[in-house]
Design a protein around this nucleic acid. Structure first.
Length: 266
DNA sequence: ACCCAGGCATTGG
DNA sequence: CCAATGCATGGG
């Protein structure tokens, strides 16, 4: 089934993130296609004319696939707005067709963010891959990120053995066991989502903001605490990151993705 | 053997 | 209330 995406759309550019810090067991690439689990099934994403061919396909997969492809973003509105910003206008030609991908699974998103706190993305990726290899379900090409239930019987020491700090191991297992409906956060306001997440141990402002940006795709999400975003703000705008965030309203999220993509461009 | 890397909770003043 | 500290791995 074809998921239609307006032109311009560059599949390789948009999915580059998943390969940036080394191989990712959750996102497998083969013959120009991306494979990952959605709603319990391994799905193939093949770039096609007018969008992306998604197989297999059903209603549950449609929701996750559209998330993964960032279909909810209104890129033409963003481009029209960004054309009036000197800096973004200069960066856009190199990033033509970039449609930032979202992570369709909230638990996966949060755990991935916990692994990425403070350490380099390469370290984070290595540790996360070990978690996935140990507790995930293996498919033909990709591995499903472990469900909360799959971690129910794990002990902190088990995760420490995979390279987690003792603290992070506790955060992940506490989150897995928390009496909290992560899917329900989708119908909460940005501020409610922040308050809920930050009330859990191990989830701070940076994590909550990236969750808003990378899972919920909220337009105004702006991870001001992010080390690389701070560097990008300074490099491209000579501005402090929070001040820049106010200037980039109401497109903070897309702006952040584009600035980071430009910052880490070859 | 260092030092830094897309934070956070805890502790001590 | 703010500053200092520990955390564990991968790469330079």
């Amino acid at each position: 089934m074809l998921v239609s995406l307006p032109e311009p759309y560059d599949f390789a550019l948009s999915t580059r993130r998943f390969q940036a810090s080394g191989p990712d067991l959750v996102h497998a690439f083969h013959d120009g296609c991306l494979y990952r689990f959605i709603a319990g099934r391994e799905v193939r994403f093949a770039p096609a004319v007018g969008g992306v061919e998604v197989e297999p396909f059903d209603d549950a997969i449609r929701v996750g696939a559209e998330k993964l492809l960032g279909a909810q973003f209104d890129l033409s509105a963003f481009r029209a707005w960004a054309a009036r910003d000197r800096v973004l206008a200069g960066l856009l030609p190199r990033l033509e067709g970039l449609r930032p991908p979202l992570l369709p699974d909230p638990f996966e998103c949060l755990v991935s963010l916990i692994t990425a706190q403070q350490v380099s993305l390469r370290s984070a990726r290595a540790i996360r891959n070990r978690l996935v290899a140990r507790y995930g379900r293996r498919g033909l090409r990709a591995v499903a990120f472990p469900s909360r239930a799959a971690l129910a019987d794990a002990h902190p020491e088990d995760l420490v053995a995979l390279g987690f700090s003792r603290r992070k191991a506790e955060y992940v297992l506490e989150l897995a066991a928390a009496p909290l409906d992560l899917a329900a956060l989708g119908s909460s306001s940005d501020e409610e989502v922040r308050a809920t997440l930050v009330s859990l141990r191990g989830l701070g402002p940076w994590t909550a903001e990236w969750f808003l940006a990378r899972h919920l795709g909220r337009a105004r999400a702006w991870p001001a605490g992010d080390l690389v975003l701070r560097k990008a703000a300074q490099l491209f705008y000579r501005m402090e990151v929070r001040q820049l965030g106010r200037r980039l309203a109401p497109f903070q999220n897309l702006s952040a993705h584009y600035l980071l993509a430009a910052f880490s461009m070859p």
